[in-house]
C-alpha cells in the first residue's frame, strides 16, 4: 500500500489579521492511500471543506505541506494547474457551476483547458458521461433543462473527463433522494475501479461512509482526531457521538443493546454485520437453553 496524497502539518487561517480571523485547520496531518476510497467526516465547520480545497492548491497552507506522489504541490506554483488536473475536485452542489450551452460542451470545459485535441476531448466526454450513467441523447441538451440529479451527474462528469488520479468530492450526494445517492456513489466507485484512482469523499452521512469508504479520517474543531479503517473508527462510536457526528442507526441500536446489559459487539455499522452478530448471539442462547 502506498501513499498517494499526504497532508503534513498543515495549518490555515481565514481572513488573517482582521477582526474576523478564524483558524480553519490546526496542524493537520493525514495520508490518503493510492487506489482507495477514503471518507473524510466531520460536522459543519470542522475544517473538512477547507482541507479539501488545499488538496488541489485552491488554498495555500499558512504552514505545512501537501505532497502528491511525495512532491510538494506548491514546489512550483506555476505548475499548479497541472496539479488541479491530477487532483480533481467536485464541490458541494456542483450543478450550480454548469454554464455551457450543451451538456457535452460543459463536460468538455476541463479537458479543453488542459489543451487536449478534439478527438481526445470527445472520447473523454463520452467516457465520463458513461461513468455517471448519462444517456447519450442527453449530451446535446442544455444542462439547464435537466433534472437536479442529472445536473449533478453532468457536473461530476466534468471532473471525471479530466481523468484525475485523485478524485475529491465534497458531499456529492447532498440533497438527493436514496436512488440519486446510490447512482452518484456507484459512479464514483466505477471510476475508481476503472482508473485505479484514489478517491476522497467528504460526507457527514456515516451510513453512506459505512457502505462505501475503505478508510476514514475524522475531523473535529480544525483537527484530525481519528484515522483508520471503518472497523477501527466505528469502534469509537461513543467518541464520534460526543463530537456531534451521526453514527448509523444500526450502530446506535447495538450500542443501546449493550447498554441494556447484553454482551454484544458495538463496532457494527452495516446491517449485514448486525445480522451476523445477532445470529451468533441467538445460536449461543439456543445452546444454553
Amino acid at each position: 500500500m502506498s501513499t498517494k496524497l499526504e497532508v503534513k502539518n498543515v495549518s490555515y487561517e481565514y481572513s488573517p489579521n482582521t477582526p474576523f480571523a478564524a483558524s480553519a485547520l490546526t496542524d493537520v496531518s493525514c495520508a490518503f492511500e493510492a487506489g482507495m476510497i477514503t471518507g473524510l467526516i466531520g460536522h459543519t465547520g470542522s475544517g473538512k471543506s477547507t482541507l479539501v480545497q488545499m488538496l488541489n492548491g485552491l488554498l495555500r497552507p499558512v504552514s505545512g505541506q501537501i505532497l502528491l506522489d511525495g512532491r510538494d504541490i506548491w514546489e512550483n506554483p506555476k505548475q499548479l494547474s497541472r496539479v488541479r488536473y491530477r487532483v480533481g475536485l467536485v464541490f458541494q452542489y456542483p450543478e450550480y457551476q454548469l454554464f455551457e450551452e450543451t451538456v457535452s460542451a460543459d463536460i468538455a470545459y476541463g479537458p479543453k483547458n488542459m489543451g487536449l485535441d478534439g478527438a481526445e476531448i470527445d472520447a473523454r466526454v463520452r467516457e465520463a458521461a458513461e461513468f455517471v450513467g448519462l444517456e447519450a441523447d442527453l449530451l446535446d441538451k442544455s444542462p439547464f433543462e435537466l433534472s437536479g440529479g442529472q445536473k449533478r451527474r453532468v457536473a461530476i462528469a466534468g471532473i471525471l473527463a479530466m481523468r484525475p488520479e485523485v478524485l475529491v468530492l465534497d458531499e456529492p450526494a447532498a440533497g438527493l433522494d436514496p436512488i440519486g445517492r446510490e447512482t452518484i456513489f456507484d459512479a464514483v466507485r466505477a471510476y475508481q475501479q476503472a482508473r485505479e484512482a484514489t478517491v476522497i469523499i467528504v460526507s457527514h452521512s456515516m451510513e453512506d461512509m459505512a457502505k462505501y469508504a475503505e478508510r476514514l479520517v475524522v475531523m473535529s474543531e480544525s483537527r484530525v482526531i481519528l484515522a483508520g479503517t471503518p472497523d477501527e473508527i466505528f469502534r469509537r462510536a461513543d467518541l464520534l457521538c460526543s463530537i456531534g457526528l451521526d453514527v448509523p442507526q444500526i450502530t446506535r441500536t447495538m450500542m443501546r443493546l449493550s447498554e441494556l446489559g447484553l454482551p454484544c459487539r458495538t463496532d457494527i455499522f452495516t446491517i449485514e454485520a448486525a445480522k451476523e452478530e445477532i445470529l451468533r448471539l441467538w445460536g449461543k442462547e439456543r445452546e444454553n437453553a
Partner: peptide, 13 residues
C-alpha cells in the same frame, strides 16, 4: 467565490 474556485478546479485561469 465558490463558483470561481470550482471553475479553477477545472483549470480556469
Amino acid at each position: 467565490d465558490k463558483i470561481m474556485s470550482a471553475q479553477k478546479a477545472r483549470g480556469a485561469d
